[in-house]
Design a protein around this nucleic acid. Structure first.
Lengths: 343, 343
DNA sequence: ATTAGCACTCAAAAACCCAGAGTGCTAACC
DNA sequence: GGTTAGCACTCTGGGTTTTTGAGTGCTAAT
């Protein structure tokens, strides 16, 4: 049963996949011979397709419909058949243009990137921001807003900013706040945010702190600032997938939207994608997430310097234009990496 | 034709509206007499309904279906028939619990509020953040990230933070940046952000700046920080409206999602809602936005101290549980107002 | 090995029918 | 007068049946 795939078999499988990608309809032997110049009769094609079905590359939704590619077929396709097109100059220009980070806040840029991915691919764009905790600490700032309210602002070396409003037990003067800030900035210079946190937690237990009320204040404040660092994910262009014919019916649509409403699902996926460097492709059930059947995900990691810090990508139907989307994702990731470089 | 609406007419109209809200089906005379204890025969009800139709409160999708309320009917209903229920204690507790702003960044809180509105109403939640420009300036901070990159952080009195990455032409030392910051903070104390901007623009033209390179740098930097203040809008729970039977068919769904994808539409609406203080209700076509037919919007403004600074609300189908949603919106707005008070 | 031919299959679309809910009107009723 | 029972009529939605057409698998001829 597991005989090798012939050259002709490959050609035909490719044709089927491409037709199916284009039309979303099961493709039959006759249509295939017409659209692709195969110099073969429908009957022959039928035989080959029958073989392909046996090998698990095609299925038919029912007898007497055409056939559609299985996940396994897509896998083969992206691995060894597909040749990735280059981006057009225009495409590249547009991506570059829209990824300017000057003059904007960094998460704005990532959001825009997500939007960009969505609109150039016409599927859904996804960007996971660098985990704040992995960034290098740059500066911590306390600003007194009112008697018992302090705004803590935490700045990382790459320009990400987080802030928290803290209700303090006792009133602290702005001067004291500044002093705390200076002290901590001095202490924490060069650590990653995660390390900063560890350091603070251990200090909290130390003897010294017991006797220095202000220091302990500072530590409580900054600890409050640091806790709960949820990954930021930007998902854009959900409406795009509504245009895909496979989701035309209302029930399916609802399901999809429900699934993506909480970002947990996407987070899981992206976390997985972050394990390995570079472009990765998850096809349908491969992701082992039930909700993802019928959908594929193309991701690429991006980095600052040598460290992988985030992932971005495109989610679309399994039946998606891999050849077109892969280079988009790839190029965008590279661009973002370049932008984030701290010179 | 424009005779007054009798007491009985009102009662029946109310019954129709309530039935329709509950079932989303056109309601007929017979069902009406059954569900509401009206002590009238279907025939009589029919007569009255016929009158109501003539007056423009009801329409029938076709002969021999029941009737459905028009926008005009809803208007009358919310204005003079409906009595707004009070919130249950549980409801109030939950809203309070989820609106804690301590420990979080202010826009996080507003986003959560939007989520809250959506989940308690089971429609779509909308929150427009205070226009940053209207806030009172608190502090401006420049942080050097790398040779030509400066992060500018702008903090307002109420704890909102905006930051921008700025690529500078020439390298500026961190010391100089601090000095610039101090100078500007001194100068700009107490102004609103909008005023700050005006002030800077006018300074840029003044003679003094010509001769002080650093000052002019500072002004360029902060001007870069201030420009482009787009309103922030948080929309949550879009998937909720997919459950509404009136949007069950795929085409409608798509339309809705497309409409809300760009937030411009919502922005227009909310801007309008901000004109007047307190709870406002826009029913269907009243908003004069084509896309909004079939949908209603319940909003309330919220304030810090005496100034209206933002709006929040719920978007749902015209056929929505006004009596239930209005107090939710109202209460939430009041709560947010209280939270934002600068003590 | 390939292909033409043919009988067979099945889903989707069209055509059709029917029941049910609703209406408007008229005539009787209180 | 307002109210109600009765009746003929209308329309939609749902279910069933028919038709159509694309597609298959097999066999026999090339």
């Amino acid at each position: 049963m597991e005989e090798q795939l012939s050259e002709r078999g490959k050609r035909i499988l490719e044709a089927v996949i491409e037709d199916y990608i284009a039309t979303a309809e099961p493709v039959g032997s006759r249509t295939l011979t017409k659209s692709h110049a195969l110099a073969l009769s429908p009957a022959t094609v039928r035989n080959v397709m029958s073989d392909l079905e046996e090998m698990g590359f095609l299925t038919s939704p029912h007898t007497s419909a055409g056939r559609i590619p299985t996940d396994k077929a897509y896998r083969l396709y992206v691995n060894s058949i597909l040749e990735v097109r280059n981006l057009t100059r225009d495409n590249r220009e547009e991506i570059k243009r829209r990824c300017q980070l000057a003059g904007r806040d960094i998460s704005e840029v990532l959001k825009e990137t997500s939007r960009l991915l969505s609109s150039t691919s016409s599927y859904m764009g996804v960007v996971m921001a660098p985990r704040f905790a992995a960034n290098v600490f740059r500066q911590l700032e306390f600003v007194k807003l009112s008697s018992h309210r302090v705004l803590a602002i935490l700045i990382s070396q790459n320009g990400a900013v987080q802030n928290r409003l803290i209700e303090t037990e006792v009133e602290i003067s702005q001067d004291d706040l500044v002093r705390m800030g200076n002290y901590l900035n001095e202490q924490l210079k060069g650590l990653t945010i995660a390390q900063v946190r560890e350091r603070l937690l251990s200090e909290m237990k130390s003897e010294k702190v017991r006797y220095d009320a202000m220091l302990s204040q500072a530590i409580v404040l900054s600890e409050a600032t640091l806790k709960s660092d949820d990954a930021q994910i930007f998902v854009e262009g959900q409406a795009n997938i509504l245009d895909q014919p496979e989701f035309h019916d209302a029930a399916k649509m609802r399901e999809i939207f429900r699934a993506f409403e909480s970002k947990g699902l996407i987070l899981d996926l992206l976390d997985r994608a972050m394990q390995a460097e570079g472009v990765q492709i998850f096809i349908g059930a491969e992701s082992h997430l039930v909700k993802m059947e019928g959908m594929s995900l193309i991701t690429s990691t991006y980095m600052t310097g040598k460290d992988t810090v985030g992932v971005l990508g495109v989610i679309g139907p399994t039946r998606m234009g891999y050849g077109r989307v892969i280079p988009i994702v790839d190029y965008t990731a590279k661009l973002i990496s370049r932008l984030l470089e701290t010179e």
